[in-house]
Amino acid sequence: MLAVQALKRASWSPYAVGAAIGVLSWFAFLTARRPLGISSAFVRLVAWIEGIFAPAHVEATPYLAKLKPLFDWEFFLVIGVALGALAAGRLGSIASSERPSGRRIAEAVLGGFFLMIGARIANGCTSGNGISGSLQLALSGWVFFLSIFASGVATALLFKKEVR
C-alpha cells in the first residue's frame, strides 16, 4: 500500500530521485556494460530516416554510417524514457494539455536544434556527459557539467527569462 501511495504522489524528493538514478546507473553498468545516455539515439534516428531516402548519402557520411546497427540498447532506452514519464505523470494525475503559442513553438524548435548541435559537438548531453561522465569522475564530464551550468545561468540572468 505504501508503495502504491508513493507511485501516486505527484512528485518525490529530489534526493530520492537522484539516488534512484544513481542506482539505475549501477544497473546499466552491470547489465548493459554501458552508462546512461540519450543524445546519440537521435543520430541513429537520423541515419534511419536518411537511409530510407538517401542510402548512398548515409554510406558516404562517416558519422551516420558508423552508428549502425540502428536499433540498439540506447535507442530503446530513449523510448523507455518517454513511456516511463508518461506512466509517472498518469499515476500522479498530472495532465498537460497546454497548447503552446507560436512563439513558444519557434523557441522550442530553435532551442532543440542548438541543444543537439551542442550535444554532438561535446560528444554527449546532460545524461551521457553530465551524469554518466561526472559519476565516473571523467574530466570530460565535469568540464561539460560546469560549462553548461555557467553558460545557462549567464543566459537566464541576462535575458531575465520569466518562468510561467
Binding site: 524514457v81 513511456l83 532543440g112 541543444l115 550535444a119
Partner: peptide, 26 residues
Amino acid sequence: GALIFGPAMVFLGYCPGTAVAAAGEG
C-alpha cells in the same frame, strides 16, 4: 559544445533526456 548547449537548454527548457520525458508525458 557546452557553451551552445547551456543557452539552448534555457530557451528550450529541457535537456535531451528531460525533453523526451516531457514529450512522453504529453
